[in-house]
């Protein structure tokens, strides 16, 4: 028994037929084919399935696909357009070596990006607080917080120079 649903993901509309118990995670990862949304625990604890729903991070593993029809879903791969250019936050992750195995990286980037919009003056401690539900087993977090801090600096600088031009 499957239900027809329409999901808006990274600006594109997808028509899917899913069981009602299909999680948004499985629909994105398996049905639409987005490798940047990952199963890590199914409990909402680890953060590897983090996606943005109307620009707020949520657990894709704790949302059923049938529930996600009226929101705009963004995943890490929707952060940049088809051009190969990385988002400045991704560049900060690169420069600081803020990824090792890389499995937690999409969740880290998306969660930090939303915080940057909300509060680019966040302190190191506030960044840590925001990332508390995105577990990392490789890096020890230091480099991740370094990367996010540097990006926040860039956002603040751009805001103060009234920029937007790059």
């Amino acid at each position: 028994m499957k239900t027809q649903i329409f999901l808006t993901v990274n600006g594109e509309q997808h028509e899917l037929w899913v069981r009602n118990d299909r999680t948004l995670l499985d629909a994105l990862h398996d049905d639409i084919g987005l490798p940047d949304v990952r199963y890590g625990c199914g409990e909402g604890v680890c953060g590897t399935c983090t996606v943005l729903a109307d620009n707020e991070p949520i657990n894709a593993c704790l949302t059923f696909a049938v529930q996600a029809q009226d929101v705009a879903i963004q995943t890490l791969s929707g952060l940049t357009n088809a051009s190969e250019e990385l988002h400045p936050l991704q560049k900060c992750f690169l420069e600081h070596g803020a990824a090792q195995c890389g499995f937690c990286t999409p969740g880290m980037v998306l969660t930090s990006k939303v915080l940057a919009q909300r509060n680019p003056s966040a302190t190191r401690q506030e960044i840590r607080y925001e990332l508390v539900g995105n577990l990392c087993r490789c890096t020890g977090y230091t480099k991740i917080v370094d990367a996010v801090e540097e990006y926040f600096g860039q956002v603040r600088e751009q805001a103060s120079t009234g920029g937007g031009d790059r």
């Binding site: 199914g42 704790l62 059923f64 529930q67």
Partner: peptide, 27 residues
Amino acid sequence: LIAGGQSLVPMINLRLAMPAALIDLNP
């Protein structure tokens, strides 16, 4: 009834809860 689902859905995922119907309050 499902609101945020942050406690209910893990139970469904782990097959600890198998509701016949889910009534979504989010709308």
